[in-house]
Design a binder for these strands. Structure first.
Lengths: 189, 189
DNA sequence: GTCTATAAGTCGATAGAC
DNA sequence: GTCTATCGACTTATAGAC
């Protein structure tokens, strides 16, 4: 059984994604939940509070996943495939709140913003190191690791928007095609 | 010499990109331009008006570019490379207003929103057909064309955000690396 | 063409009855 | 714990002096 706080957060995430944080009013959220705006404050303390919780929880999920994968003893190319797999899974399981990571984080207040960008920068640094290791291992051709990182991450970050239009696709199939596009390339060999 | 209207549009684009359309007030724009908010209305008729102009002008630039490339007699794989080249060029030349296409279009009023999504859908359809033709020509491996489209487009759409952090890179070099990552793939052959 | 003043509405959040 | 009523700040946009 979901607490009313959880229900409010779910509704807020859906609206933040659809209309953006600034354009979503407490009255909008209240209507979606089925109560008056003033009543929301019995369960949450502010609009910014639930926004921070949604965003930072998601960022921490990614950080934990990265720590687990990067801390393993796998080869870097396998780590990369596991990262792609994680992004696919999160895009399916947390479609709404994951969108905030790509688009809405700028509306965080100063202190949570610092925490968020710190987590994100650390995540990107570890991701880039894995790519560099793929090149050193000889599994990747000697491409600019920053451009490769950017290319892979921007695709993974928009997975959620594309997946929500194509619910019929098999997640396992999607993951396989994703690795094909991002790693093996499209050109026929 | 730039008209005051042009200056206002430039400032607005920069702020819309940085803080989002909803979070940018007429006072913010006025301060950036160096006048009072009320004075802006001697040059523009509303905030939504300049927003629409920025967004639809950019969308039409992409449509024109697509028409020219798709209407040429080149092989599809060459068309694709020319599309990538166009995205790189636009990301450099129109860094601010191009960001609105990816993030802020949801705040368009009903009628311009219809026009925008119609242009975007048509653009994506032509892009996908070029990818399908690459597969038929045997230049691409038989990948899901929708996933390939999504993978390429999401990377190209985030070029601007990445390029503005890395001004030192050569555009020609960037274009070459882009084609490498998106078409040839990262895996060593 | 720029300003001050202000209209008319919406925002997040609170007070207090029930 | 939900409601109605409302505060004070902020929003886009206009009126009218200069």
């Amino acid at each position: 059984m979901k607490s009313k706080r959880e229900i409010i957060k779910d509704c807020a995430a859906r609206l933040f994604r659809k209309k953006g944080y600034k354009a979503t009013s407490m009255r909008d959220i209240a209507q979606e939940v089925g109560m008056e705006a003033a009543s929301l404050y019995n369960h949450i303390s502010s609009k910014q509070e639930i926004f921070q919780e949604l965003l930072l929880n998601m960022a921490r999920l990614f950080t934990e996943g990265m720590e687990e994968i990067d801390g393993s003893s796998h080869k870097s190319i396998i780590k990369l495939e596991k990262l792609i797999s994680m992004h696919v899974r999160f895009a399916i399981e947390h479609t709404d709140s994951i969108s905030l990571i790509t688009n809405e984080w700028v509306h965080l207040d100063e202190e949570p913003l610092r925490e968020f960008t710190s987590l994100r920068d650390q995540y990107e640094k570890q991701f880039e190191n894995i790519i560099k290791q793929c090149i050193e291992d000889g599994d990747f051709s000697p491409v600019d690791p920053e451009i490769a990182l950017f290319s892979i991450l921007s695709t993974l970050r928009w997975l959620y928007s594309w997946y929500s239009k194509q619910k019929n696709i098999n997640p396992v199939e999607l993951e396989k095609e994703m690795i094909h596009c991002l790693v093996d390339g499209l050109r026929n060999k």
